[in-house]
Design a protein around this nucleic acid. Sequence first.
DNA 1: TTGATATATTGTAATATTACGATATATCAA
DNA 2: TTGATATATCGTAATATTACAATATATCAA
Lengths: 87, 87
Amino acid sequence: MDYNKTSELLKALGNPVRLQILNGLISSHGCNVNTIVEQLRIPQSTASQHLGILKSRGILTHKKEGVKTCYKVSDKRIEKLLQMFSK
Amino acid sequence: MDYNKTSELLKALGNPVRLQILNGLISSHGCNVNTIVEQLRIPQSTASQHLGILKSRGILTHKKEGVKTCYKVSDKRIEKLLQMFSK
DNA sequence: TTGATATATTGTAATATTACGATATATCAA
DNA sequence: TTGATATATCGTAATATTACAATATATCAA
């Protein structure tokens, strides 16, 4: 087990805003940054920063669709993990 | 889902030293602080601090056995989680 | 072009986490 | 008692994370 890599992944998950983002993306099967900004009522730059962190850990992928960008959860384990710890 | 509580739990897991401690405790079915200190070659105060964090999140419990203290993983989900992400 | 929209990046102050030495406390044995 | 061992707590410097405004960039439509 690569403790550094695993801890980076878990550290990325250990933030309430990012958990909300992930939950939102999972339940809506992916969406753009603006939707997240509106749903969570956080500044756009904050959302973008958090998305960047999740992306850099391989938790999210994104796809440009014209002007918009669609993010979605690429790591299948995340959904299971969130279920395990949500309650 | 309580985002703050869940993120606190995951944040506690998002540290390489704490992951090692947990892995050690799981594989050896609990042990005292000194064993951890020796195995990980970290200062005693550092180990104690990390154990305190894991304890405060309900991940570990401890039992005093004379002079020594035996820590063990009390949250059954942790083992499953570590398996999921160890590779 | 220009303007509007969507997103990323940068700068920064506030806060949190980390590691670790020093010190405190608790237990047991002699 | 005293000393040895085991662990916790404190103090603190270094580093990391956070939130957010300001600004940059990219895309599309008119």
